[in-house]
Amino acid sequence: MSFIKIRNLKYSYKDDEGSPLGIIRDISLDIEKGEYIAIVGHNGSGKSTLAKLLTLVVDDYDYLEGSIEVDGVEITSDDMTEDGIYDLRKKIGMVFQNPDNQLVATIVEEDVAFGPENLGLERAEIRRRVDDALATVGMTEFIRHEPHRLSGGQKQRIAIAGIIAMKPECIIFDESTAMLDPIGRRDVVATMERLNKEDGKTVINITHYMDEAVRADRVIVIDDGKILLDGTPAEIFAEVDKLRGAGLDLPQCTDLTIRLKAKGIDINGEINTPEQCAKAIAAALGK
């Protein structure tokens, strides 16, 4: 049984003035435990709305049809209780875009402890989880620091630690790298991958950076509230026209290879990184 099972989900919400915010037209999707998925799409494609629906933190809705099941529980059902929602949020953690607006406490360790405290854990257990979580994101030395003095990437890793400490099955990163500089981004992506590979967490990275999407095991492209493409990075990046149509860029090396292939030059193999690309071109040239 899939960990997350979405069936014919349709959703819409209008703000006070009637302009629509976040529309899902018809999405069906299965996500298994331990997957590393990137969800890409341009701004307003509905990718963030989908993530928010998974943890039921959407503002409100005018229309909701279809179903979402998480770990066998239908979270879109009307019988969903407060406690049910609470259990859901224990299973799926979310890291958001702006690192500043997720940190609650004035000291790093107290912020990381916020989630476990809400779960009502024993003090010794909170201590253990805080220390483990900070070690996982490599921020142990900052345990007594004030978050507002840290860099964006460091703050974001603290936010991740805050989620890890709650031990969710799945962590959704909702454009968590968009506001970071390259070093911050690299560190956060490395953290995601470590969580997936070493701790076996289900990781969903919602992003518009194609070089991040390339690294995932599975890429889902969302456009206009629908799933446009769903497959491995290689499969996705073969659909150049569809990606362009959805307002997305290709990784530059993939783009180059595709253009060369179009000119009848024979380049083989999966090409997403400069290394792969160089090897394939050199091979094609007979070097």
């Binding site: 530059q252 783009d255 400069p274 050199a282």
Partner: peptide, 27 residues
Amino acid sequence: QITLLMRLLCEQGVNISQDIYTVDDAE
């Protein structure tokens, strides 16, 4: 990325200008 690619190609023995930074020029 493209500059990196050109360098890697050079290392593989491909004789190509190292003065290339965009996909268009590389193509």
